[in-house]
Each structure stands twice: as structure tokens, then as C-alpha cells.
Simulated assay, not measured.
Amino acid sequence: MPSLVQNLMVWDASYDWPEDGEEWSAAWGGSANHWSMWLYPRVRAFLPAKKVLEIAVGHGRWTQYLAQRCDELIGVDIAGTAIAHCRQRFADDPRLSFHVNDGTSLAAASDRSVDLVFSFDSLVHAEADVLGGYMVEFARVLSDDGVVFIHHSNVAALGAVDPERVHWRAPSVSAAIVERFAASAGLRCVIQEPFAWEAQTLTDCISVITRPGSRWDTGANRVEPNDRYRTEETRMGLTVAGLYPPAPPLAQHGASHAEALNLAAAGDAQGARALLANALRRTIAPEALNDLAVLSHRCGDHKTAITLLEALVCLHPDDVAARENLADLRTQPDLR
């Protein structure tokens, strides 16, 4: 049984993190593919979020993607070495903070402040006492429309199983037990997806939990078993990863913005302006902004169209299409 002490001994002492957690996404062709093909489609409705709380961050395998879609992220882990690694890895992003926790409480988050609690590929090793403790904390930290997205064990629903074949999943946890924990804490499960990590045995589960009456509360729990994770979804992810070029390294967009504001506060307006302009060149798609300007003009908002194109030309002076559209719109009358 994976107790807190056993988890701490493994993840903080004996495991050497040879690929910083990427080894667990190797079957998908890497974490970028794993995130974009399987995780993000499930969590995208809850993002972007003002504040994200990630439980069991490890070496930041999912943190790097969540950080692109929030204003602030709090990461917790029982392993001090993992927290030290994340603090170093994300040192340039002041929006992110990392804290060692005790495995059942979330002291780093204040009451009703968290919009998304996220954990994947970690709490499957947590027994029922840990999940029960966290559930009470979820009820404390969730904002009015906050939501929990956690990956946990479903082994307790399977009856007798060979411990060697469930990959250290907690035998005391199931989807039904997590649903009961949520109800006892005054929360509500609205989605549960028991899924098969290997073969067709539903050893794992995703649970989505929220406050009654929140925007995510559907009034009922929808349970949809998925036995295709390894047999179809993972295989397709690996195929796609080998077929197309790899994604470029992620840019820490929020970090540039925060650093620019720090420079401005220190009196370096020119440096802040240059840094933020460079960040916007990386993150704004010129084609999309160009199209938005043209569509704004067609909808009768000539002034906005001109403003958008002027900003685009300022950021991308070599964009021929933007310059031509700007010159063309300046000669046309306002359609209003």
C-alpha cells in the first residue's frame, strides 16, 4: 500500500528523475503530445484560470503547460527535492510559487482563492485517507466557480487484483469513494472517467469536482468508462508524435509580462517597453490580428480596424499584408 511515507521515500529519495518526468509520457511521444492530445481537451474548459493549484508537481511536467494559461500558479509536493527543482526551473516566472506540503493539506492556498485544482499522474498513488484529507481542503480553497480536476486510483472498484499489474495504484480508492468524499465535504462530482492505464482494466479515474451551484455544476455526476487509453489513444498519440515535427520550446509568456512590469516599477520604462514588445511579437499571431482588423471593418468598426492594423505594423513592420491592408483602409470611408 503506497503510504505517504512510502511515497516520500520513492519520490524524494530513491527515484532519480532521469528525464524530469518525461519518461512517463514516452508512450505518447513526450509530454507535449500527451498534454495536447489527451489532457488539454479534458481540462480546456477550465482554462485560462486566474489561479491554479497543482498538486504533486514533480519536476514540472504539467506545470510548464498550465503556466501558459493562468495568472498565478501554486505548486505543492511532499518531495522537497521536487520543489527545489521546480523553483530553479521556473525561477524566471514570478507568477509561480512552489511549496513542500504534508500530503493532505494545502496551506499555501488561501480560502476560496483557487479557480482550478489540478493533479495528473500522481494521486493515483494516494490512499483513501489522503484523498479524504485533500477533499476537505478543496472545499476550503475553491473559489465560487472553482473546479477540481484530479487523476486518482480506481482499484477499489475492481475486486481482487494482482498488485504487480496495477502499477502501485492505491487499492483503497475508487471513483465511487471519491464521489462520496466530495459529497461529505459539501462538494459535487460532475464528471468521472474511469480509464484503463493498461489493457482494458479500469485502474484509473479522472474526477471533476465543484461546488454545488457553481457554473460547472450540472446537477448530476456523469460517469463514462474509457478502456481505450492504451489500446487506441496512446497508440495514436505516439504515431502522431513520430509523424510531425516536434513543437518548439514553450515560451514563458507571463514571465515576460511580469518582468516588464518590474522594470517599469523600477523606473526603466524603455526597457519594460522593449521587453513587452518582444513578448508580444512571440505570442500574437499576425495573421489572426490582420484578419480581425479586416473583419472589424466589414462589421462597420472602421476605427478598431485601423487601430489593430497600426498596432500590428508597429509590432511587425515587415508584415507586407498588414501594411497593405492599413494603407487600403485609410483610403476607405468609415462604413458606419
Rank of each mutant, 00 (worst) to 15 (best):
L202T: 12
L202K: 10
L202P: 12
T203V: 15
D204F: 10
D204Y: 14
D204V: 08
C205W: 03
I206F: 15
S207Q: 11
S207E: 07
V208L: 12
R211W: 05
P212I: 03
P212Q: 02
P212G: 02
G213M: 06
R215V: 09
R215L: 09
D217I: 04
G219Y: 08
G219S: 03
A220F: 07
A220T: 09
N221V: 07
E224P: 00
E224Q: 10
P225A: 11
P225T: 11
P225Y: 08
Y229V: 08
Y229T: 09
T231D: 08
E232D: 09
T234N: 02
T234R: 11
M236S: 04
G237N: 07
V240F: 05
G242T: 05
Y244C: 05
Y244R: 13
P246Q: 10
P248T: 03
P249Y: 03
Q252D: 11
H253N: 13
G254P: 00
G254Y: 04
G254T: 02
G254W: 02
A255N: 09
A255F: 08
A255I: 12
H257Q: 13
A258P: 06
A258S: 13
N262C: 10
N262V: 11
L263V: 13
A266S: 15
A266E: 15
D268C: 10
D268T: 12
A269S: 13
A269D: 13
Q270R: 14
Q270S: 13
R273Q: 11
R273W: 07
L275E: 05
L275V: 09
N278Y: 00
L280V: 02
R282K: 06
R282H: 06
T283C: 14
I284G: 01
I284T: 07
A285R: 04
L289M: 14
L289I: 01
L289D: 02
L289C: 01
N290C: 03
D291R: 02
L292W: 03
A293G: 05
V294F: 00
S296Y: 02
S296A: 13
S296V: 00
R298Y: 00
C299M: 00
G300Q: 01
